[in-house]
Each structure stands twice: as structure tokens, then as C-alpha cells.
Design a protein around this nucleic acid. Structure first.
Lengths: 277, 277
DNA sequence: TGTAGGTATGAATCCGACT
DNA sequence: AAGTCGGATTCATACCTAC
């Protein structure tokens, strides 16, 4: 049984292309990961809920859109899984990271967003999940949440990345077709038409998806509104996306359908910026 | 007895201006910190040896210039204290960080360089030393990183920063005269005439020193070739620098003397770039 | 002044050979 | 032998030299 068939059999909403080169599932990722064929994944690219931004349980218990954007008029749907404390966040991350490792081939990579506050927890969790921690890439948002006198602006988010075992040396783990990738992207968020509080720019995700060999399988267990999957489709990678929240799942399906329906001859996708210093 | 007098009494090489607005000491910083007047420090800005760059003790035991720059024609003098494993590095950092906290006034800040590998250890050590961890600033070195196919370039180093208690709110901790500081600096190292393998660009340190209130006291317990002290002098801060290696201490003294002897009317220091996105 | 080509560089990393 | 050592190798970029 294919992944889509197994998920449908469990009663989860599923959207997939006919050849299942793209499969989107609405469910808890911890339930789905065990169904992915072992050794099939080429790259994990994901942006989990950070569970950051509050020292106390009551702060974290607020709905995320209230917590992160208190003065913003636009209302975002609440998203799930953003209410763990730092220790629990680490344990929880190591759970799904371990599940993804099982599904990954040797030499696959895992790239995962985090903010400054959760960065140490995230590197621990990645290693606890069995991945070899390889480094940190930086996303320069250019805008700080709150500029303040006498403080350095926290204007960056971070991408912690690692590999499933050796990188580009073992049989079948060639880096052919993968370029040298930048370690820093400067992509402003200003003026983005966001569907999700934490939505990332498409050009940023295109840069990250490039670490997956062409034609390889990209997995995003926290799909949100689907930016990672759109980028993967655009760059000719296969993709699996999982999202627990029905509202965001529906948004992601729409965006991925729209991307697949683009007529590439008349409206080619924007060139990926190779150099983004 | 003044700091310089106390250090001379212990037989350590000392260089100081007459008013002791700048004091440089050649000694182990752990021995010197307890002599600094409690509550006098406005900002710690430092770049300790990372003890990075190798999975095995034997790798770290190589001379730092072999470890970090094996193909390079030019040879740098060795520097001390670069051979601790990750746990020992954390303990050692927390020791001198605690010593600096005692010497700091409420609202003082500590900014400390680290690389990706030691970043989680560094944030732990800063908190263990009693500082309130406030964030991470980023130094984008641009071209300097070693590129590799299928990997994100490690082109950034990180500045972990924190405060001695409350920041800019308690009595006497005003942020008057301190601007909103950037959270990312893009400063290439290419073409730098370096005296030390790990020497940082002067403009970068000028940016960091700005977090100290004008006229305040900047301390660098790992002075190296003295870039932090030069930046502090240039921006009108008082400064204490400590360096254990005599060779680098002598270099630092020369650079600081040269900076103090500049005729500011005829050769003004380069304007500090306020905005370095 | 402009272009092309060669060289030096990087706060490493990897792997085979060895003890 | 849940190890250790040492030498080969990585490639985009800046800079230098030649034309």
C-alpha cells in the first residue's frame, strides 16, 4: 500500500498527485512518520512551532497568534504544539527527529528552523534524535521584533542542520548536482502576504530545498501553509508534507495545486538566487 | 592601590596610561579578574579561544595555526588555552564569566564570540556564570568560509550576549547615549593584515563596543592582539585588557599606543557604520 | 582601463594507516 | 580497540599578474 492509501485507510485527509510524487496529509506527524518507507527520504526541511517567547507557562498557554503578534490587527488561526517548555520541547523534537532518521537514506540532511532562545535545545534534540549535527545557517530577516536602545537586535533566525550518517562519501550519497550552499540568507519579511504567523519567504525555502539531490524526496512534518512543499515542487523534488491543523492543511493544498498548475513555459518560476549574501 | 599597581606588585607585565583609563596586563585572566573593582565594569567584549575544530583531543592538541589554517603559507604564533573538550570549555568559561560578573555594575553587558560548534556550550556557560542571556548577534564573514558541495557554508561566527541583571531599567542603568544596535554585521576578513589567527576586523569590534555607555569601562580578558581595546579607545571608552601570551601582549601594547598617538584632528577615525545590514 | 587567468586563502574535515 | 594520529582534500572568492 502506498503512503497515501495507508493514510486514507486511517481516515486522515490526504491530497496527493497521481504518481504520489507529492503527498500531503492532515494528521499528527508522529503518527505518519512510521508509515514513510525506510531509507527513502533525501532531505527534511521544516519549521516546527518554536514554543518560545515566554518564560512562564501562562505566557506559553496563550494562543500563538496573540503571543507573537499582540498588536497586529490581522488574525491568524491558532496553531498547535506551541506550548511546551524548553525541556519538553527538546524531548518532543528528538522524538520526531528520530522518526525521520529512520525514514532517511544515508547522507540525507535535516534542516530545521529555530530562534535564538531554542537554538541550544534544538542542536541537542537533533543529536539526541540520531542526526550528526553539521552546522548552523542564518536567516537575516533584517527587521527585529522590537528594536531597543542598548541592545543588539535579534534580527536573525537560525537553521540547524545535520546529516543521517556520513555526508556525500558513502555509496549512493553522492553530492552530484548539489552546489555549494550559502550559510546566510538575507530575505526581508516586510510586506509578505502571510497565511501563517510563522510563514517563511518562498525564496528562502527554495535555497534550503537545494540541499536535497534533484529528484529526491523532501519531507516537511510541520507543513503549515506549505511553503516548503511549494519550493520542493518548483525545484523538481518529490515531497511529503504533514500538517495537524485542518485549516492550514487546506491552505497548503491550495498553494501546492496552484504551483503544479502553473504553465512553466509561459510563466517560468523565478530563478533561484544562487548568491544571497 | 590601583589595578596597575596591584598587577605590577605581583610581577606581571603591565602597560597603562597615566590616568589608568587604559590598563593592559600580561597574565592569566582568572588571576586578574578578582583585582578589578566590583561594580566598575560597563561592558565585557571578548573573543576567547574556541577550543573547537576537532572531534578528538589529538586534533585540538595541534597548534591552533596548524588546526585552523593548515594550507596557509603564513605562520601565526601559537596561542594558549585552545585544547579543552566541550565540557571543560563550558566549566572554564563559567569560571571567568562569574569573575567578570562580580566586577560588573548592574545593567552591564557581556558579549562573547563563539563558533557554531561551541554556541550551545557558550550560552550554557554564560548563564552558569550568572549572566542573563539576552540573545545572539551574528558576524557574517562572507567569503572566508570553506565551501563544500552539498553543505551549507559555515560563513558566520556568533556573538552570545547577556546582561548583569536588569537591562536599562534599574536606577543607574540608563541606556542614554547608546543607540539601537544591529544584530548582524557583514564584515569580510579578506585582505586583513592579521597578527593573530583569530583576529577580528576593527570595524566589527567598534560595533560591539558601542553597547558600552560612553565613558564606561570595557574589559577584554582575552585581548589577543588588542582589537577590542583599540576599538574602545577609539570610541572614548575606558578599557582593561588581559592577555596570557607575552608575544600577543606586546603586539597589543604597540597597537594601543599607536591608536592613542593618532592626531584625531588630522586623521579622524573612520566613521562607525551605524547600519550594517 | 579592462579582461582573463593563476594563486593564495580559510577559528576544517575526512579517511586510511597505525598503535 | 564504543581509539588515535597525520596527511590529503574541499572550492568559492579575493587578489595579483599578465596581457
Amino acid at each position: 500500500m502506498t503512503l497515501a492509501e495507508q493514510c486514507r485507510a486511517r481516515g486522515w485527509p490526504v491530497w496527493a498527485t497521481e504518481d504520489e510524487s507529492v503527498v500531503l496529509v492532515c494528521a499528527d506527524c508522529l503518527d505518519v512518520l512510521s508509515l514513510i518507507e525506510a531509507g527513502s527520504v533525501g532531505a527534511v526541511v521544516t519549521d516546527p512551532p518554536y514554543s518560545s517567547g515566554g518564560a512562564f507557562r501562562s505566557d506559553r498557554n496563550q494562543s500563538p497568534s496573540v503571543k507573537y503578534t499582540p498588536n497586529v490587527q490581522r488574525a491568524y488561526a491558532a496553531f498547535s504544539g506551541d506550548n511546551r517548555d524548553q525541556r519538553a520541547y527538546g524531548y518532543w523534537c528528538s522524538l520526531w527527529l528520530a522518526g525521520l532518521l529512520r525514514a532517511s537514506r544515508i547522507g540525507a540532511t535535516c534542516s530545521m528552523f529555530t530562534d535564538w532562545r531554542q537554538l541550544p535545545t534544538t542542536t541537542d534534540a537533533m543529536q539526541a534524535g540520531g542526526w550528526v549535527w553539521r552546522g548552523i545557517a542564518v536567516w537575516n530577516k533584517t527587521e527585529a521584533a522590537r528594536p531597543a536602545k542598548g541592545r543588539f537586535r535579534n534580527q536573525c533566525e537560525y537553521i540547524v542542520w545535520g546529516s543521517c550518517g556520513a555526508l556525500g562519501t558513502e555509496v549512493g550519497t553522492s553530492t552530484d548536482g548539489i552546489p555549494c550552499l550559502p550559510g546566510l540568507w538575507t530575505v526581508p519579511t516586510a510586506g509578505m502576504e502571510k497565511e501563517h504567523v510563522a510563514e517563511k519567504p518562498e525564496s528562502l525555502l527554495e535555497g534550503l530545498v537545494e540541499i536535497c539531490p534533484p529528484g529526491g524526496l523532501v519531507v516537511d512534518p510541520f507543513m503549515g501553509s506549505g511553503t516548503t512543499i511549494v519550493a520542493a515542487v518548483r525545484l523538481g523534488r518529490r515531497a511529503i508534507g504533514v500538517e495537524i491543523d485542518r485549516k492550514y492543511f487546506d491552505i497548503a493544498v491550495k498553494r501546492v495545486e496552484a504551483e503544479l498548475n502553473r504553465a512553466p513555459l509561459f510563466e517560468p518560476p523565478p530563478a533561484i538566487q544562487k548568491k544571497l549574501i
